[in-house]
Design a binder for these strands. Structure first.
Lengths: 262, 262
DNA sequence: CAGACGCGGATTGTATACAGGCTGTGGACA
DNA sequence: TGTCCACAGCCTGTATACAATCCGCGTCTG
């Protein structure tokens, strides 16, 4: 199994393809680290921060923090309130539903395009990724599976040869990963999903766009159905909080120390 | 006909819905102005700039320029090369094709969703926008039509009630507008498109998702077919340049004054 | 006691100073 | 004459200083 560091690289590599070189500037590294921590939920959704606070946490100045956070905001991972402060973007049921709705639109289309344009070696990579399963009780294998799932879908998106489309799909999956990392399991058994993946990859490998579209649609539809039942138990006040968060730090308002007595 | 100032507001209002208040900070105004100038191509595609140069142009410091440009880069309107400089994102045939491909995926789906969720008064707004036509020889009416077309499609996207999806569709149209502003006309006569819009809006107003999906698909398909023939005359070396650009300023490399003689 | 007002403190927005990187030019050398 | 190397200059990346903004609390007033 791969290490966490490699995972960071994996996620990093498949991000916005428009930027060519990476990991050379402070903003870039900070952005990568923050993104990983947000996606893996080591930074609790909804948690509030100040620029200086984040700077202390990640040992960086305010300027890089600002830039990295601006980028994360644009990707939906962070929320910025002008003159107020920063907060890790909270996870909500409505966001989850929006993302699933988009998946239902994008993924079948992407699969169809990929079936027409994918290269032989990409097909091999896809097959390898589709073989990934996980054991229900093994936390590590589950996290590994989340990564493989992400890579699989990103690879299909890349195979469309439409960079802009690929970026958008990758972003959707990045945002979805937070829900999975927080414990929203894909399902009770690890091989059903794997089977769906294999069927989808087969259709793409056969270069059959119509079949690929249908299989992808089936896959997403079933995933939505599965998560729907799971979400019910996790709803509090219309917002889904999948992990206990210290009450004082959930609100995106100012983080203020008690005023000093005179 | 509305003024240019109002157009600026129109475009501004329908941008990324995640940010609530606008036009209060320097970055925000600078961003809006830059965006408008890029979309309307008063800043030539491909033109290179330095932070200080842009700052002089728009009377702002380097920090706001940086932030605004970063945002524009993320939206595909600007290109940043680390340690090198900034350039207005060039227009390429491949970008145009990518955008159209995405339109073909998103618009029918959005139309179908909108048919289910749109409100009565939004339908009225849609009808008003769909009535817009343009006269072939009237530059002003053409620009007005571009704006109406943009608003129409954005309104449909908003009616999906999926903010993330709506943002993405709006971005696609913003990027497409540059091509139109540069002179890639929609077609020879102004009413064919209007007719397509009216048919589409009718399907949405009838709350018929299947019809809406089909009409939107037809609309986009025809638009692609129309633009395909027009593009042929505008291709130079694989990159489309629809307007004469001073040769010295097109390349995204460093803008450097000739070195001072000793 | 309720509501309005003003001040304090902390935080973000912006400008500016400093450091590091990249490119182009000019000269030295083969 | 062609190639390589080093320096100079400009530019971006980052840190820091100053200004503007907002919130909370205390106080004052009715």
């Amino acid at each position: 199994m791969r290490s966490l560091a490699e995972l960071s690289i994996d996620i990093a590599q498949s991000r916005c393809n428009t930027r060519n070189r990476a990991m050379e500037t402070l903003v870039e590294t900070l952005y990568q680290r923050l993104r990983l921590d947000i996606v893996e939920c080591s930074l609790n959704p909804g948690k509030a921060f100040s620029e200086a606070g984040l700077g202390r946490l990640y040992d960086a100045g305010r300027t890089p923090v600002r830039e990295a956070c601006r980028r994360l905001e644009h990707e939906g991972l962070m929320r910025i309130t002008p003159f107020r402060g920063y907060a890790i973007a909270p996870l909500s049921v409505s966001e989850f539903q929006d993302l699933e709705e988009m998946q239902l639109i994008f993924e079948p289309a992407a699969a169809a395009l990929a079936a027409e344009r994918i290269s032989p070696q990409e097909i091999e990579e896809l097959r390898a990724l589709a073989r990934a399963e996980y054991r229900v009780d093994d936390k590590a294998s589950y996290r590994e599976f989340i990564r493989a799932n992400y890579q699989l879908h990103c690879l299909i998106a890349q195979a469309t040869r439409n960079i802009r489309l690929s970026d958008i799909i990758a972003n959707i999956h990045i945002r979805l990963m937070r829900f999975f990392y927080l414990g929203l399991s894909f399902e009770a058994h690890g091989h059903t999903l794997s089977n769906e993946h294999i069927v989808l990859v087969n259709a793409i490998a056969a270069r059959d766009p119509r079949a690929a579209r249908r299989k992808a649609a089936d896959h997403v539809t079933r995933a939505i159905a599965r998560s729907a039942t799971m979400l019910k138990g996790a709803i509090r006040f219309g917002e889904a909080v999948f992990e206990s968060v210290p009450a004082g730090n959930t609100s995106p308002v100012r983080v203020s120390k008690p005023r000093r007595g005179k």
